[in-house]
Amino acid sequence: MTDTTITKDKFGKTKDGQDVHRFTFTNKNQVTIRVLDYGCIITEILVPDRKGEVKDVNLGFDDMEGYLTRSPYFGAVCGRVANRIAGGKFSLDGQEFQLPVNNGPNCLHGGVKGFDKVLWDTTVDGDRLQLRYVSADNEEGFPGEVTTTVSYRLSDENVFTIEYTATTTKATPINLTNHAYFNLAGQGSKNLDGHVIQLLGDHYTPLNENTIPTGEVAAVAGTPMDLRKPVPLSDRMKEVNGGLGFDHNFCVGEGGKLKFVARVEHVPSGRVMDVSTTEPGLQCYTAKNLKPTLGKSGVTYQQFSAFCLEAQHYPDSVHHDNFPSSILRPDEVYQQTTTYKFGVTE
Rank of each mutant, 00 (worst) to 15 (best):
T168L: 08
L184W: 00
D202V: 06
Q198H: 03
A221G: 09
S234R: 14
P224A: 07
G215Y: 00
T214K: 12
N208D: 09
N210A: 15
S234T: 15
N191G: 04
E254L: 07
F160N: 02
E265K: 06
T205A: 11
F260W: 12
V264T: 09
V220E: 07
A218R: 07
K229E: 15
A221S: 15
G270I: 04
G201Q: 03
T177L: 04
L176Y: 01
V264N: 03
F160K: 05
A219Q: 13
F246G: 01
F260R: 12
R271E: 02
G256Q: 13
T165P: 01
N191Q: 08
E216K: 15
V252E: 00
N178H: 12
Q198N: 07
V231T: 10
V275N: 01
A221M: 06
S276P: 10
P173M: 08
D226L: 04
H248F: 07
F160T: 04
N241P: 08
D202N: 15
P173W: 10
H248M: 01
V159L: 14
H248S: 11
G253V: 06
T211S: 14
H179P: 04
H195I: 02
R263L: 08
A262S: 10
T167Y: 06
Y204C: 04
F160M: 08
A171M: 00
P268D: 06
H203D: 13
